[in-house]
Design a protein around this nucleic acid. Structure first.
Lengths: 164, 164
DNA sequence: GTCAACCTTAACGTGCACGGCAAGGTTTGA
DNA sequence: TCAAACCTTGCCGTGCACGTTAAGGTTGAC
């Protein structure tokens, strides 16, 4: 292979510069640097001239951050705590692979489960409360639709009121 | 009935002062005033000495605001837009009650439906994205739990790894 | 009436999540 | 090799959502 630029078995050692990352994820370079400042992220590498270089895991992580921020509305501080849990999980993975002691493995797994459960509960709480608001809105919608159907059918509704 | 403090047929004409409202809803008085500043809310009345006085509708409205802010993570600007829709809906209710023209009633109802649908879609979008994050977390959880069950049963897992 | 506990407006302060420079170093294509 | 286009750190600025303080007016129990 001449210069190794398109090896099909290549484990995508493609590293992106900050603007490419930001562009890809719909963030700004400033935001990405800010997340690093806060310790939410550490780019895979730096170039010779200290340019930040990001790999696929970094992109994953940034997507996760963006999701928690935009979709779930968590603060960067909360996200930070979640990611610390993720990191503890990663460290556990490493320890897990290097031990053969069954009891230690059980401990590591139980620990990981607790951490994942925390994120789970956190998200379920959000989901529940949003679901409650949705059903509230839906009941208003249904109410309106019944009235409208009554009118369309030429019927006189039992009580005329588009709200409630 | 002596002093009318517990008339069962009473339409609760009880008006609350700002600290009572804040206390009831877990907000601060500053926040409530700020929401009024932004036009999200207008207290039902003012006392002789211009104390703000809130009625049950105001409390409802504040609960809605709090829900959209805390649970759904909307900005106060977005909430403002939603509440403008609510107000248009209220105006429509008034118009609806004073008209007998069926065509106008249909128009008002359809308008109200569109507004409610906008809130609906907005919330469903949030719910979807959160659901996606939840199932991501759940699959990690399940994975962990299978490994743990394997270990508890003394079996050797097919691949030892506490991560995703 | 009077006093503590509440309220008012007005104003400035604060934490978060970046935005937007400046002053310089790095990459890269022609 | 050299200029345009990128990147770096550093630092001050900004919008949002309030917190806090100041200076005073209002309420309600005594």
């Amino acid at each position: 292979m001449a210069s190794g630029e398109l090896d099909p078995g290549d484990r995508s050692p493609r590293l992106l510069k900050i603007a490419e990352v930001a562009d890809e994820l719909g963030l700004t370079t400033r935001a990405v640097r800010y997340y690093e400042e806060l310790g939410l992220l550490k780019p895979a590498a730096r170039s010779e001239g200290s340019y930040r270089l990001f790999d696929d895991d970094d992109l994953e992580r940034l997507r996760f951050i963006r999701g928690l921020r935009d979709d779930a509305g968590f603060s960067l501080a909360e996200i930070g705590r979640m990611l610390e849990d993720e990191e503890a999980r990663e460290r556990n993975r490493a320890r897990f692979r290097t031990t053969t002691d069954l009891e230690e493995r059980r401990t590591i797994l139980r620990d990981a489960l607790i951490r994942v459960d925390r994120q789970h509960v956190s998200l379920l709480g959000k989901a529940d409360r949003i679901a409650a608001m949705i059903s509230e809105v839906e009941s208003r919608r249904d109410h309106l639709q019944r009235h409208l159907a009554d009118l369309e059918a030429g019927r006189t509704p039992r009580h005329a009121d588009p709200g409630s």
